[in-house]
Design a protein around this nucleic acid. Sequence first.
DNA 1: AAACTACTTGGCGAAATCGCCAAGTAAAGG
DNA 2: CCTTTACTTGGCGATTTCGCCAAGTAGTTT
Lengths: 103, 103
Amino acid sequence: MPLPYQSSLDRRVAIIKALAHPSRLSIAEMLQDGERCVCDIRDLIGGDLSTISKHLSVMRDAGLLDLEKRGLNVYYRLRCPCLLSFLECVDSLAPEGGEANGP
Amino acid sequence: MPLPYQSSLDRRVAIIKALAHPSRLSIAEMLQDGERCVCDIRDLIGGDLSTISKHLSVMRDAGLLDLEKRGLNVYYRLRCPCLLSFLECVDSLAPEGGEANGP
DNA sequence: AAACTACTTGGCGAAATCGCCAAGTAAAGG
DNA sequence: CCTTTACTTGGCGATTTCGCCAAGTAGTTT
């Protein structure tokens, strides 16, 4: 059980930390298109299922995600529709496109 | 010298990481009101000046901050005016006010 | 130019995070 | 009920981050 945060600053930081990892940010991005079950997320991110599950628990504990169990599957969805505009802001800071810029 | 990022994902993550610490988020918040010199920031955040300086370098390297030297002082300012709206989003995820809600 | 102010950088031990493996839980199917 | 599927949790070594101390750099003042 995650401890309650002592301050609103800590809560904000927990939410931001929950996005501050390549796999977790990718999860957030893919969930912008709608809910996904853990196995779908694993297919996209790769790596051990337990690793994915722990990333999801970090995001859950921060309050970023809601989950719903249906049958054998667990479906996650974003609680934060405004994420998209933040990512646009983030990208506006580093506009030179992507991969190690060749000519 | 910070290495160039291999992907746009890494760049995004670096920017988000640069906000994912209580002192650094507080710095970002205070810079929303306008530029500040390092000593002003130190007065607000507290702790060793070298620690503040390293936090600022993380934010600089991520591209969050611009700096300008004037006289003996170094003034930092946000390169990201859209930060504010993201923090509103973050707070909307945890609306129950602040500090460790006692009964 | 020597002393001072305002920072930055190097170094290091302490703490947090990461990802894999193994083991545990819960719903569905045979 | 026993097995299978889908996921979660515990544990642990490896890497990363954190914050202080000490030392270095760059303008300023005297």
